[in-house]
Amino acid sequence: MVFNILLLISVFSISADINTLRTKKEALQLEYNLVKNSPTSYYLIIDFAAKEAHLKADANLLRTCKIMDSFGNIPPRTQKLTLHNHIQPYTTEPKTVYRQRELPLDFSERLTNGPKSRSRLYFMPSFLIQSAGLPTPRDMPGIQLSKQDTKALASALPPNTITIVIPSTSKNLGLAQ
């Protein structure tokens, strides 16, 4: 009886390891396809297990950004995202009109015109990278990076850049190596 219980515990332990390996395989396969199809392009790997985001090109590491915080519901599976657009410091955003008056701030308290001190990167399916300290949107998952890292990523990644998100349910995958 005791032996059976021990065996059962081993089965559960192996199942957890298999999930970790499966996630690692999916992420590596996505990265390999990316590198094979567009070797000169920059791409981003957001690794929730390691709490780091890695800017890479052709499997070469270019920058490691520490994930300072995350928000929203992060999907528990490996995901491939596409960068949709940036809000860069000099982006002009649509003005907020309230009772026929134009407001200088939007409802997240950002300036609608003039220089902004921070950048945001919007991805599809819905995901956001923004500087730490900004108000977080309600229904959008995302991460907060340092102001320097966000600015550097906004400079590196043009629209349509592919990003791979690895969930935190797995163990540290060591994909940055």
């Binding site: 390996l21 590596l28 396969q29 499997a59």
Partner: peptide
């Protein structure tokens, strides 16, 4: 995983 890592390392500078 080892096979994919090997293939990726060929791309690495």
């Amino acid at each position: 995983i080892e096979a994919i890592e090997k293939a990726l390392s060929k791309h690495r500078e």
